[in-house]
Design a protein around this nucleic acid. Structure first.
Lengths: 151, 151
DNA sequence: TTAGATTTGAGAAATATTAACAATTCAAAA
DNA sequence: TTTTGAATTGTTAATATTTCTCAAATCTAA
């Protein structure tokens, strides 16, 4: 479950930050599409439908703020854009940077964090490297595309 | 072991590409520092000591070519630069995009590919996603920094 | 040596993101 | 509600990496 509007307001106030229309709308756009990975420009386009006077710089600034508050995550698909997606407040840690990227259909999805735990403990045991965060991208062919291929 | 100069020449000829001084020097710079992760600008600076007349665009073009030939790998540390490192011809697959990034000293190192296998087979078994490539970055504190901290 | 295609160098162009700064907006106090 | 001061915003310019353009140079096969 993503963060609620009222929780967000409370969080801003706690940090001494102001609750602005722009901040609410940017978060809302991201919260509306938990499965998508939007670029700043895409967020800007969507925000403009509700708030035509918003500036692109404000989107960049707000996205930066939301990252710092750990309400959203970033993903870089190496296509020249940084993308953003709403985080999941159910998880204790908001580091959900592990994605499956289908080379056929382009779909980006996440997989369960616990699948990474073996890898991380393995690295710690073998190399003494204490893992605190990760960004994992696995490229390949998703189930859907595999099945369509077979037909 | 990285690719040899003569192998590279042969590979270029096989593909109908020309063997140029610039291509040889760029590969050499990368081969000299298998542990480093150089930006295009850094490669350019080093190449210029042997070849002062080279252009930056040529470095970008050559690096692109070397990527396509799978002689080098790219890594993006999200600091605004794409970085390149020589690949390892010993491995059958040249996808060595798995790195440990120390948040204390900034060192970037690689870990053995076989540690990833469990993760990849797990994803395949659980989700039907056939993994063909990966880019894995684990952030944390390396052994060196952990030990220095303790002193 | 020649010829033709590829490659290069230099600088312009493209493009994502950040910085600067005056104008606006928010929120606490009067 | 009004006031007030600081935070935030919008606009535009700036920054910086990477790509594009094109004439000149270079490579390779004949």
């Amino acid at each position: 479950m993503a963060i609620e509007r009222e929780e967000f307001k409370k969080l801003l106030k706690e940090k001494g930050l102001k609750v602005t229309r722009q901040r609410l709308v940017v978060l809302e756009v991201l919260a509306e599409s938990p499965e998508e990975h939007l670029t700043a420009e895409e967020i800007y386009e969507r925000v403009k439908t509700e708030n035509p006077d918003i500036g692109l710089a404000t989107v960049y600034r707000t996205v930066q703020l939301l990252l710092e508050l750990e309400l959203i995550d970033r993903i870089n698909l190496d296509d020249g854009f940084v993308r953003y997606e709403i985080g999941d407040t159910q998880e204790n840690e908001h580091h959900r940077h592990h994605h499956l990227i289908c080379l056929r259909c382009g779909r980006v999805s996440a997989f369960q964090k616990d699948m990474l735990e073996a890898l991380e403990t393995g690295v710690e045991a073998a190399l003494g490297f204490r893992v605190t965060d990760h960004e994992v991208k696995l490229y390949g062919i998703c189930r859907n595309c595999s099945e369509q291929e077979r037909i």
